[in-house]
């Protein structure tokens, strides 16, 4: 069997947010919807200042509070470790968002089709582009995925539903790595199958400095971190993104 996991190497991460952008383009998420977030953090006072970066996708928890609270089973856990959202079933109660300790869920507050950055309704765009919103619309998101045959990939599907990182289920099905892991300029995101002993992700998880985010929450994440350290409460976020929903 396959059980996916991600390891993020904080000794390598440049805080560049390429992962954020790759995710956005791959998953067609609308404006204001960032499934990956990269914290840029600062601690201490001048001159004893330290800085750190922390990329934060959905943790795909094995003991996922978001799954537990979903009243309709739109949020569910798969055997391969993925925590997915069936956007056809989601009723938009946002309970998952509330229950998640990591703040990774994104609600479609407005109509996503009208919230794709620019007005793409341009008659001068070539035929094959016109009508694709956004123009980089990825057709993988129109189809069902997995044995469960549910529509779970991509973002910006409907007003009033919650979406979040899918571990790029559509790419995994194509035999590709998640978009963020692929693009990372310094290969700080390692993705693989923990059930495959030969997969390099296992060696990373076994590193002595590996840790999980918010272990006290008991969520058993499938995203692990190596290098660096868990952010403390005194870390201040600098260069915050400004989402407009």
């Amino acid at each position: 069997m396959t059980r996916y996991a991600m390891v993020i190497d904080l000794d390598r991460c440049q805080g560049c947010r390429a992962c954020v952008e790759a995710c956005k383009v791959e998953n067609n998420t609308p404006q204001g919807s960032l499934w990956m977030h990269v914290f840029r953090l600062e601690e201490g006072t001048y001159p004893s200042t330290t800085m750190s970066f922390l990329p934060r996708p959905c943790q795909h928890c094995d003991n996922a509070p978001c799954v537990k609270v979903c009243p309709v089973g739109a949020r569910y856990k798969r055997e391969d470790g993925l925590v997915l959202t069936d956007f056809d079933r989601c009723i938009g109660c946002r309970y998952c968002e509330l229950a998640c300790p990591y703040g990774v869920n994104v609600f479609n507050w407005s109509d996503p089709a009208e919230h794709q950055y620019l007005d793409w309704d341009d008659p001068d765009l070539p035929d094959e582009v016109r009508g694709s919103v956004p123009p980089w619309h990825n057709p993988d998101h129109d189809v069902v995925h997995g044995d469960e045959q549910r529509r779970t990939s991509g973002g910006g599907h409907a007003k009033g539903v919650v979406e979040k990182c899918t571990f790029c289920v559509q790419r995994l099905e194509r035999g590709e790595l998640p978009a963020c892991a692929t693009t990372c300029p310094v290969n700080a995101i390692i993705f693989g199958d923990t059930d495959d002993p030969g997969d390099s992700v296992n060696a990373e998880i076994a590193r002595g400095d590996a840790f999980d985010l918010l272990p006290e929450a008991g969520t058993k994440p499938r995203v692990h971190y190596v290098g660096g350290k868990h952010p403390t409460r005194s870390a201040r976020e600098i260069e915050r993104v400004e989402v407009e929903v």
């Binding site: 560049c16 952008e21 007005d119 341009d122 693009t183």
Partner: peptide, 16 residues
């Protein structure tokens, strides 16, 4: 790999 600008340039290509 690509940096954030490399990824996001698709937004410029189709810019109306």
């Amino acid at each position: 790999t690509l940096c954030p600008k490399g990824q996001a340039q698709i937004g410029a290509v189709y810019d109306p």
